[in-house]
Design a protein around this nucleic acid. Structure first.
Lengths: 181, 181
DNA sequence: AATTTCATGTAACCAGTTACATGATTCA
DNA sequence: TGAATCATGTAACTGGTTACATGAAATT
């Protein structure tokens, strides 16, 4: 009943990563700057405040690690509430809007589902994703038709780029569903 | 020699659209909310301040349109300086970073090149885009190999989604180059 | 008469960016 | 000894979001 705060993309990435491996801010920055995990800046001005926000929401808690002689690191792990919040976020339905405007967020959510959602729920996500993507491809196709023979060639080609990308997403989803053993 | 202010994504979209058709803030909001032109909010709180910024930079100037009995609209068009700024922005090289983190911006730039850059320059853009994309696909492939057989299946599948999407981008660019008559 | 559309804008808030700062440790 | 790395953080700025506000005209 009580409404949960929305989780920002960066917070979702942080919660997702921490759910796999307890990490310090520095660890997270390294992941963001060395892996293709998403469009995240590894800037301290983004990561540390985001960690504080997650902490304030009770999603993570930090333990000081003094095993090294180096400056002590604060290693964060998920709280029970954090696990709940992450699970709920990952369980959100795939909306048409999210497929159109937040495809990256959807894939980020998918990347963290392992071990948090059941196989059934993950497959449901992929099916919803495929359906919504297929619909949007049709919409883009209709749009393309209205531009038929129009003067700004580049605009049409750009639209085709979008259509091709979404078609690739659709093929990926359809192929991944059966591969998901 | 004098350094031009960087153009934000929203400003670029506004300049690009206005370069095709002089428009009011309301016109632009309608385009953003009814066409797949990009991830832009059509919110007045974004569009009107962005117009003011462009105006302050001397890129656009507005004329009051009183032809209608309705509330007068302020119709903006590009200034000479605005055309220069847009042309320079569209002429920026395709960097590896932009292919990775700002693919949407690159496609947006491409969509507006018609009539502003020469055919030769547009083709150069597509070739640079293809090269950088191909390189990044290789990087992602290497990354994928390091995850071979790892436990979080979803993470690997998510990476594959990215690889497939970039492959689609590459095919699009390679196909579009010769189609560009 | 009430709602929708045309058309513009402001204000509070939030979050990311760049740049700076600190200070210890390790490496060349 | 100087540079790079470990590790955390702050401050100023920018720009986008949501929500609110106005007011006239057209539509139902």
């Amino acid at each position: 009943m009580n409404k949960r705060e929305p989780i920002s993309t960066l917070s979702l990435a942080i919660l997702g990563l921490i759910s796999k491996t307890p990490s310090s801010g520095y660890d997270l920055r390294k992941v963001f700057s060395t892996t293709p995990i998403g469009a995240f800046s590894s800037s301290p001005g983004a990561v540390y405040p985001a960690l504080r926000r997650c902490e304030k929401n009770g999603w993570i808690k930090g333990d000081i690690d003094r095993t090294s002689i180096l400056r002590p690191r604060q290693v964060f792990q998920l709280t029970v509430a954090g696990h709940e919040a992450l699970k709920e976020e990952l369980s959100q339905p795939v909306t048409d809007e999210s497929v159109i405007w937040q495809n990256g967020d959807l894939i980020l959510r998918f990347a963290f589902m392992d071990g948090i959602l059941t196989k059934k729920r993950i497959l449901k996500f992929l099916e919803e994703y495929a359906t919504a993507t297929e619909e949007y491809i049709a919409t883009l196709g209709a749009h393309r038709k209205t531009m038929e023979g129009m003067s700004p060639q580049c605009g049409i080609f750009a639209l085709e780029q979008g259509i091709e990308a979404y078609k690739a997403n659709l093929r990926w989803a359809k192929r991944t569903i059966p591969e998901f053993q």
